[in-house]
Design a protein around this nucleic acid. Structure first.
Lengths: 182, 182
DNA sequence: ACTGTCATGTAACTTGTTACATGATTAG
DNA sequence: CTAATCATGTAACAAGTTACATGACAGT
């Protein structure tokens, strides 16, 4: 599982607090390819610390728990590189909307149609948001250094994914219309 | 979570044994949008039975545990319809290859390039396999009844997903080549 | 006064994975 | 004789979700 290695990858760029790591998943580039809750991040960082992959510097806070700034250790760095050298497995698809394909005929076709329309709007918005995130890289793709190119490519992957959903929704809505008006 | 409702959807089409339900996920249409292990299926069916969503008829087998043929109950049918009427949430993306975007520069670019090539071949094969599954529907799309159209559309979703991966890999490989040969 | 951001966590629960266990029948 | 298919499960573990708890400080 990549939560461990995604966090190590963040920390390989710069030391971060748990709060900041969690934010990477919800607001930053991490969200393009992985999802994790704040609780999961805190738990994983504690585990990583026990494993010796990260260390933290505790910064006393007025009237509350210490802030912990985590950095990657040589051992964590090695674990990340080892992992990057292994082949990846395509993610298993788990998509709720797929059940419509098996049992959609049990509900009125307007329900299916409406749901696809709703999803199309969601994916359109997500594509737009990702494009904004990418615009900085997209402007001068041919001048990027490898590090930034990789980042750009991953955001591109996410953009394509959302746009592909939008296009499929078009295809599906059209096909349903044709059958219903037949 | 859709495991419960995917199984109910299978059983709404016809009664099946646990073994057959599990096979739907690995060989049948179910695998287009959901993944579940045999153990998960057996556990979920037992749970569904306790909840009164399914019942089974035990068929004695020579020298081994009874075979259980599960059917959906009216209560299970209602639960499925209720669920189909609710809005779906887009699946959270969790993709190992994404870590390359954050930390790919820590390994030689040949590693990243090779991995993308490997993935491209995988996704190409999966697209081909799905197209074979779909060919029966694809032949006469305009003559399908709604039930089959929905099925076709879901397989189409899976095909598009795999093909989009293949296209992205092309895009990524080209971009990396351009930067490396610069 | 209230909302949002910063900042840490614990606990209970659900979901999914990996390893193990059993054993008949059929096809090569 | 060996492997695949049929057919059921248990047990331990890892990963992810949901709900709860605490509390300062900044802006409207």
């Amino acid at each position: 599982m990549a939560l461990k290695h995604t966090i190590l990858a963040f920390l390989s760029r710069q030391p971060l607090s748990g709060y900041e790591v969690a934010k990477e998943f919800t607001e930053g580039f991490g969200g393009c390819f992985w999802k994790a809750s704040q609780q999961q991040v805190y738990a994983e960082l504690a585990k990583l610390e026990r494993q010796g992959c990260v260390v933290y510097e505790a910064i006393p806070q007025a009237g509350r728990l210490d802030k912990k700034i985590y950095s990657i250790t040589p051992s964590g760095h090695q674990s990340l590189i080892d992992w990057l050298t292994q082949p990846t497995e395509p993610t298993a698809i788990r998509e709720d909307l797929g059940v419509m394909g098996l049992a959609g005929h049990l509900v009125p076709n307007q329900v299916v149609y409406g749901e696809i329309e709703r999803r199309q709007n969601l994916h359109r918005d997500m594509a737009q948001h990702l494009k904004t995130m990418d615009s900085h890289f997209a402007k001068h793709v041919d001048a990027l250094e490898l590090k930034d190119l990789y980042m750009h490519l991953i955001i591109r992957r996410a953009i394509r994914y959302q746009e592909d959903w939008v296009a499929w929704c078009d295809e599906a809505l059209e096909a349903i219309e044709r059958v219903v008006n037949r």
